[in-house]
Structure formats: C-alpha cells, structure tokens
Nucleic acid binder design. Structure first.
Length: 545
DNA sequence: CCCAAAGGCCAC
DNA sequence: AAACGTGGCCTTTGGG
C-alpha cells in the first residue's frame, strides 16, 4: 500500500551542490541545471516533489520552473514531532540534518561522532511510517500537504515580490518627515518636534528616543507617568503631549519604514520578504527581514499594481471566532455569523448590547481575559454560546495541568518548559507554601492562556493554509503562459491575501478567492454549516482596500 | 567591539 | 502588581 502511494512521488536530495532525484524505479544524479530540466520535464505528470522546499524551489523559480505539488520534509518532520495521535516511540527521531537549524557537515560544525545525515528518501519513508501508525493520519496528511503547498506559495511570493512604488513611498516620506537627511541625522520634521518637546519640558538636551530620559524629564515637569507609551500619554493633559505623540508616530515611520528600509528592501519595484512557513508555534507564518508581517497602514499607499494590472485584496471576516464555532460545533455561534458580520449576529442573539462589546468579549474569550470589559463580557457569551466557550476553557485547563493540546488537523503545542511543568505540579500540591503557590498559579494560568489561544489561532492558520493552497491552484488555471503573465499571489498575512492580476481577470480572481474560501471551510469542517465570508476589494493600491 | 534585555510600537 | 494570544524589529542601555 505504501509503495502504491509513492508511485507519483519524486524525492529530491541536495548533496554538496548536486541533486539526487529518486522515483519508484529510477535514481538520477544531477547538477543544478540538470535538475531544472528534469523538473520542468517531469512536472507534466504532476508528481509530488518530496524535498526541502526552501532549499530547492527558489532555484527552480529563478529558472522559470513552477511545480504544482510538494511534500516538504522539513515541515512534515517538525509537525509529526508534536502531532496528535502519533505513538510516543515514533515521536522523537534522533536529531539529524533534517532538523530545523541543523548544521551542515560542510560548515565543520556537525559533531564528529554524529551519524551521517539520512537521505531524503529515508526521511520520507520514516514520515510515511509515522503516519501509518497514527490514528489521525487523514488530518495530518491534509495538514502536511497544505503546509507544503504553503511553502511553494511562500517561495513563489518571494520570487514575484509585492509591487512597490518607490516614488510614491518617497513622496509620502517627504510629506511626513521633510527632506531626506544624512545618515544618523534626524529628518527636519522630527528635529522640529524634538525642539518643541525639549521646550515644553524645559529639558534642552533631552533625547526623545530614550524612554529613560523621557520618563525623568516628564516627572520633573510634574507629569506622573509609569511609562512613556503613547496610550498612557494620551490620558495626560500637558503641552508636551501633542508634539510628543506626533514625534513617536513619525519616528516610527522613519526608523521602521523610512528611506533606509526602502534602500534595504525594495529592488526593481518589488518588496521581497522572506516568509517563514510554520515559523510561529501555532502554525502561523513569521517573516525575516523587512517586517513583512507588520506593514503599517501608513505606507500601504506605496503598494501599487503594475500598469494595466490590479490588486485583489481579500481578508477573512472574523476568522478566529468562526473557526471556533466550527471547532466546537457550536451551531448557535455559526448561526450568528451566517450571512452577516459575526459580531452583529452576536448582538442580534441578545448576548451583548453592542458590536464593540461583542468583539472585545469574543477576543477576551480567545485570549483569556479576566479583567476589563472583555473579561466582564465573557460570561455573557458563555451563556449564549456554551459549546464554543467550553472548548476554549477546556484547552486552558489542559494547559494549566501541563498537558498538550492540538489543533483540528493535529498540530500540537511544544512541551511546557521546566517552570510550567513545576507549576502544574505545585498547584495541586497541598503542602506548597503560599508564595510558591501564588507564583505557580500565575505560571499555570500563563500556560493556560497560551493553550487556549493555540487551538483557535492554530486552526485558523490551518484554514488559511487550505485557502491559500486552493487559491494558488485556481489562479494558475485562470491564466496561461509565463508566470509573469498570470494572476499570482504576492502577499499573505494570517487571514489576508493579495493577488496581482491583469486587470481583465480581476473579477474572475475575486470569484476564485471566494471559491477557495468555501473549499477551505469544507476541508476543515466538512458539512458543518459555518460560513467564512471574505471582504474582497479590487484596487490599484493596497491602501484603497 | 558584540550581545542581550528592556521599552516601545507595528501587524494579525 | 498585573492585567489578554502570536510575532518582528527599532533604539537605548548596560554588561562582558
């Protein structure tokens, strides 16, 4: 049975600059250009390429070769290590070169007595054996194939880049900050504001970038603050507040997304961040360099489609609460979100009075709020949506006890650290003294908030992966010819995508984005009637979405 | 000189 | 005093 399943698999091993490709009854040793030719040729049969996507695929994309399906050995390995339903003795293979962050032998850093790295083929076989032994094999296969498709999409998005207009960004910076200063010098607008701040606080040498100096100067001027955070300063009535808040806003723009950022990250009209698939414990993506996952709304005006092209910007509305409704099979909550804004539906249900209350209460339930407005409203939601709230409560209790929790498709939490394990024991220890107990309870609650959020954030990440994976295939089928002429993904952020498309196909892209969301909902929740509506906009610039 | 922690703010 | 989850990345600060 295993061998039958592998017929359409081609395993690619990268060994010292060469590539070994192994199929059911073939084994080829290729140089890089040989690999490009082979993949281009064999892709017609739609094989599943078994490889380390990040290490191999960028080279293929650079040569204009795109593949449809993959099995990412590194991602699958990390997933299976903590997956639901995997027998304990198969959970932890000895560390080797397939582990994240593992060091290559040619760095001279591999321990001299380490076993030689197993081949990709061996690792793949091991993974299939683990799946065969798991009672959650179906869900885990879906998760691995979706995450592997995500890895393909991540490499493709980096290759394509997010369209970025340098001149628009420069104009925006000039309007906000004034002329570009020499390196290490404040731009004119910041220098002016710094002068006003110093005058208002009678502190002629103050550096407003230093929280320590700023706190001291504020206190001397009679402003009693615990921090210099904008949120706290907004509550203060003093002439320094206005220029100081303006300074903070502009200083952030200057340091995080100013001229220096543009020079470092925008090339040939594209911003090319490096996505780290599965880089977050919950399965969300992280990113390295350029702050790709925190592009401020302030600079999104510089993201502009090419001439004759459009951006289709789509985000899932209230994704996490909807995912929770599906996870918990909470029909009342699913009903609240049917055909309307979920928070409006919660108000209509009578649970809370306002949309803002519904939102803060719902987020409070997902994050484990115990105080404030969120904490106060959670019990009201629990009354109306007992199944949904019971699910997150149960995840929190499991975490407090030091247990693992899993997402719908089986991604597991990393094991608790020593402190959390000790805390879980101390909380039930009748002899523990009061101070120890208090500290232990706080730690256990920390872990509980993590596991509470993990199940929902992680399952939402799985929905988003399925959405992205299905959309990627639909977009490919929508166009023809070279990659650069077809609609393609250019950005992904947790529950949001941007597609860059020829204007003539924009409406069809918008339809496919919707269709892919429906597919993702079915893949995760089958026939359970929970909706995943999208906000979709066809625009020329991101800031207009 | 490098490095890590702290404070802060951006995104979801 | 802490308080509600996941991250990245900037500057300052203080240590070696």
């Amino acid at each position: 049975m295993s061998s039958e399943r592998r017929v359409d698999h081609l395993v690619v091993d990268a060994v010292e600059g060469r590539f070994v490709v192994a199929g059911p009854d073939e084994r080829l040793d290729l140089d890089p250009s040989g690999l490009v030719d082979l993949v281009a040729r064999r892709e017609a049969d739609r094989p599943r390429w078994v490889w380390d996507t990040g290490g191999v695929y960028p080279h293929l994309l650079a040569a204009g070769v795109r593949v449809e399906r993959a099995w990412d050995l590194r991602l699958a390995r990390a997933l299976l290590r903590r997956a639901a339903g995997v027998p304990a003795d198969l959970r932890d293979p000895p560390p080797d070169a397939w582990d994240e962050g593992a060091l290559q032998a040619d760095d001279g850093l591999l321990p001299f007595d380490a076993a030689p790295p197993p081949s990709a083929r061996q690792e793949h076989e091991r993974q299939l054996r683990v799946l065969d032994a798991s009672d959650r094999a179906g869900a885990l296969r879906l998760l691995i194939t979706a995450e592997s498709a995500g890895a393909l999409a991540a490499a493709e998005m980096r290759a394509a880049g997010l369209p970025w207009r340098r001149e628009v960004h420069e104009r925006l910076l000039a309007e906000a900050l004034g002329a570009r200063p020499a390196p290490g010098v404040r731009p004119p607008a910041l220098e002016d504001l710094a002068g006003r701040i110093r005058a208002a606080l009678a502190a002629p040498t103050l550096n407003p970038d230093s929280p320590v100096e700023l706190t001291r100067a504020l206190r001397r001027a009679g402003v009693q603050v615990d921090s210099t955070r904008a949120h706290e300063l907004r509550e203060v009535d003093h002439p320094v507040v206005e220029p100081l808040l303006a300074y903070k806003k502009l200083a952030r723009l200057h340091t995080a997304n100013g001229w220096h950022w543009m020079d470092a990250w925008v090339r040939d009209g594209r911003f090319r961040p490096e996505y780290v698939v599965g880089g977050v414990v919950t399965g969300r993506w992280s990113a390295r360099g350029g702050g790709a996952l925190q592009l401020p709304k302030q600079v999104r005006g510089a993201v502009v489609a090419d001439e004759g092209w459009r951006l289709v910007v789509a985000d899932a509305a209230q994704l996490e609460p909807r995912v929770l409704a599906g996870l918990a099979q909470d029909r009342a909550m699913a009903e609240a979100g049917r055909g309307r804004d979920l928070y409006d539906g919660i108000v209509a249900s009578g649970a809370v009075a306002t949309r803002a209350g519904a939102k803060v209460g719902m987020l409070g339930a997902l994050y484990g709020a115990t105080s404030g407005e969120g904490g106060r409203l959670v019990p009201r939601l629990a009354q109306r949506f007992p199944r949904a709230l019971a699910l997150v409560e149960s995840a929190a209790r499991q975490g407090e006890r030091g247990e693992a929790v899993h997402t719908l498709l089986g991604r597991g939490t990393p094991p608790p650290g020593d402190a959390h394990r000790a805390a879980a024991r101390a909380v039930v220890d009748l002899d523990a003294d009061e101070a120890v107990l208090r500290r232990a309870r706080a730690l256990a609650r920390d872990r509980g908030r993590f596991t509470r959020n993990f199940v929902v954030q992680g399952t939402a990440a799985e929905w988003a992966l399925c959405w992205l994976a299905d959309l990627r295939q639909r977009l490919w089928r929508l166009g023809d010819g070279a990659v650069e002429r077809r609609p393609h993904l250019v950005y992904f952020l947790h529950d949001e995508v941007i597609v860059h498309t020829p204007a003539s196909l924009a409406d069809q892209v918008a339809e496919q984005v919707q269709a892919a969301a429906a597919t993702a909902g079915r893949l995760l929740f089958d026939r359970f009637p929970v909706d995943f509506p999208l906000d979709v906009a066809v625009v020329e610039r991101y800031s207009d979405a």
